[in-house]
Nucleic acid binder design. Sequence first.
DNA 1: GCAATAACCTACTATTTTAGTCAATTAAAA
DNA 2: TTTTAATTGACTAAAATAGTAGGTTATTGC
Lengths: 160, 160
Amino acid sequence: MRLTTKGRYAVTAMLDLALHGSDRPVSLADISGRQDISLSYLEQLFAKLRRNELVKSVRGPGGGYRLSRARDEIFVAEIIDAVNESVDATGCGGTADCQQGEVCLTHHLWCDLSKQIHGFLSGISLANLVERREVKNIAARQDARSQNPAPAETLTLAEL
Amino acid sequence: MRLTTKGRYAVTAMLDLALHGSDRPVSLADISGRQDISLSYLEQLFAKLRRNELVKSVRGPGGGYRLSRARDEIFVAEIIDAVNESVDATGCGGTADCQQGEVCLTHHLWCDLSKQIHGFLSGISLANLVERREVKNIAARQDARSQNPAPAETLTLAEL
DNA sequence: GCAATAACCTACTATTTTAGTCAATTAAAA
DNA sequence: TTTTAATTGACTAAAATAGTAGGTTATTGC
Ligand code: FES
Ligand code: FES
């Protein structure tokens, strides 16, 4: 199991899409600006998200990405699965054979843990996140900043 | 958050210690043989486990390691913490400042996930694992094999 | 038709982590 | 005093992370 910035970036970007993509497609440049994620890196992540049919793309001017399903039908676990390998915590990937073809001493523990994590993350949809108060507040802060994109040297206290 | 073979090896080795270390210290060579973990790698892991006061060492012939506490007072979460950095899933480590000093969109989600994982793994002690039927069975298999250590070429079906 | 936009694709890279190996030293028991 | 086994430190190959760079293709508005 691994959860690094790759998975975190993917969920953050998808949440940004859920927040801003209700009417028009959202470009990666927009997401990059709001969430401080490298544009080229986002391209890599969205290639995987598209392959896993979590987003649809629209090319050309005014284009970008939109969610391929409703916000309440996309779950955090799917997003992490799409960019990472999986949220599986076992060493064997479920085949119960990591000790020379036989099940190891701690296999069942990692299975239980995997179920725990997967159960938790597949119970949270983008819609759930969008509804959260903290998420709304943070999104409002990000929107305010991006509408008035001043260089770092001239940032006022009010903008922070 | 990361859970790789490092953390899995550590838990497996500690469980081996809980299973075999009731009367005498257990040498790393024994654990290495039973669990198929490189001896030198175990040495590295046990250096960390000792620094975190999860095990005590006994040098010299007949020496080895023993648990520094009772089996029901050592929890899986502690073991993983000792060798890995932590089971924390956030990018900020709890300081809520991963986006240029401010909290990011998904901070609360990763906090919740961390609590979930930590709650699960800190509720499982070595004593809990030792009592499990599957663990007993697998340990019995491993013991039978190690008492009759034949080279791979001459292994009989009965030994497998 | 043309320029601008933005997805799409491929390849490359620096850094870090993993999963070890190797060699030498120290302490204790037999 | 020899053997056992922990202890320490340095080193390494391979993989993954977190990007960067440069180009190509499709679409839209002018
Ligand atoms: S983790 Fe599944 S057999 Fe070891
Ligand atoms: S993960 Fe805590 S602020 Fe981003």
